[in-house]
Amino acid sequence: MTRKFFSATVAISMLVLATTWFQPASAIKFELAGQEASIATPQCISHYVDDETQVVIKTKVGSGPHQKVSVEVTDDSEHMNQLWKKDNLAEDMQRGAFETKRAGDVIACFTNALADGYKPDPRYVRVVDIDFEIGSETFDYAKIAEAEKLKPLEVELRKLEDMVKDILEDMEHLQQREERMRNTNESTNARVQWFSTLTMFVLVALGLWQIFYLKRFFRKKRLID
């Protein structure tokens, strides 16, 4: 029994190590300088997400007097549909959850507006932390374990199963993109081949026409027999 448990633990550890290699780093930390509210320029961060995927964005800003940080999350469509918005972010963690309708970049834009009467200054800077949680990363496994009465080992297995599903979906998506690119390349190569063949035919026909025309012209001029 102990040997089986040890083997299962080792297998799970190896699987966790393997799956972590496929997990992209989605947590970002940066400084956001304060600007006048009327001319504040947003600083944006994007993350690619597939369609019909659950997304949770967690943001946290550092302390800073006379500054108001706001965030607006949109997609990269023509209309830039708003997915989440939060004004005057506090120092505690703010959480926005939504589900994407289309595949593309999810864009989070932050602005740091100074209070009236204050001008931009190197002192007015706030640190912003943003973390994208996508797919299985958004699941609350504590609630799942409580609802389904799962043991700790079963919870870890559920996490691994969901991570593997995400990886498989990503691999399928990459395969589909590769197939589309391959089809596009093959179609382009076929068109180039036909265009090259047509070009050679036109050049040969034009060369033959020039030979016959010049030969006829010189005969009229009695320059050749």
Rank of each mutant, 00 (worst) to 15 (best):
W21A: 10
V55P: 00
D129N: 15
E161Q: 11
T53L: 06
F217S: 08
R222W: 00
H66S: 11
V106F: 02
W209T: 12
R158F: 03
V202W: 08
E31L: 13
Q176A: 14
P42L: 04
Q193M: 08
L150K: 08
L174Y: 11
G207S: 12
L32K: 04
P122V: 03
R216N: 12
N88H: 10
M171G: 06
N189D: 09
M200Q: 14
K165H: 10
V127Y: 02
D170R: 15
K151H: 06
E154Y: 07
G96L: 06
T197H: 09
H79Q: 14
I28A: 10
V55H: 04
D116W: 02
S196T: 13
A8P: 00
W194G: 07
Y118R: 14
R216C: 07
Q175G: 08
E99S: 15
S13V: 08
L89K: 05
A33I: 05
D105C: 01
D140A: 04
K68T: 07
Y118L: 07
V127C: 03
S63I: 04
T20H: 12
D162W: 03
G135Q: 04
I57S: 04
D105N: 14
V10W: 11
R182M: 10
D50V: 04
D140F: 03
G62S: 14
L203W: 06
V155C: 05
V71Q: 03
A108D: 02
M200W: 14
W21P: 01
R222Y: 02
R123P: 01
T111N: 02
T59D: 02
T19D: 08
P152M: 05
S7E: 12
L114V: 03
H79N: 13
E148N: 09
P120F: 05
E99W: 04
E91H: 07
S187G: 09
V128L: 05
E154D: 12
T53A: 04
V10H: 12
P120G: 07
E154F: 05
I134M: 04
Y48D: 02
S38G: 08
V69M: 00
W209F: 14
F212G: 00
I167P: 01
Y213S: 12
E78A: 15
L83E: 03
P120I: 00
F201P: 01
T19F: 05
K86A: 08
T20G: 02
R216P: 04
P122T: 01
H66P: 00
T100W: 04
F195M: 13
K29F: 03
T199A: 13
K68H: 11
V71Y: 01
M200S: 13
E133K: 15
V127W: 03
L157D: 01
L160M: 11
Q193A: 11
L223T: 04
V192D: 14
T138G: 01
C44M: 04
F139I: 13
V16H: 06
K68L: 05
E78K: 14
A113G: 00
G62T: 07
Q54A: 11
T41S: 13
I12W: 01
V128Q: 00
Q210G: 05
K143N: 06
A147S: 08
T53F: 03
R177Q: 15
Y118M: 07
A27D: 08
Q35R: 07
K85W: 05
I39C: 06
R222H: 09
Y141I: 01
E137G: 02
S38K: 13
T41N: 07
Q94R: 07
R95Y: 00
H47E: 12
V128Y: 02
R182V: 06
S70P: 00
E156R: 07
K68D: 12
M1N: 09
K119L: 12
T138H: 00
T188C: 06
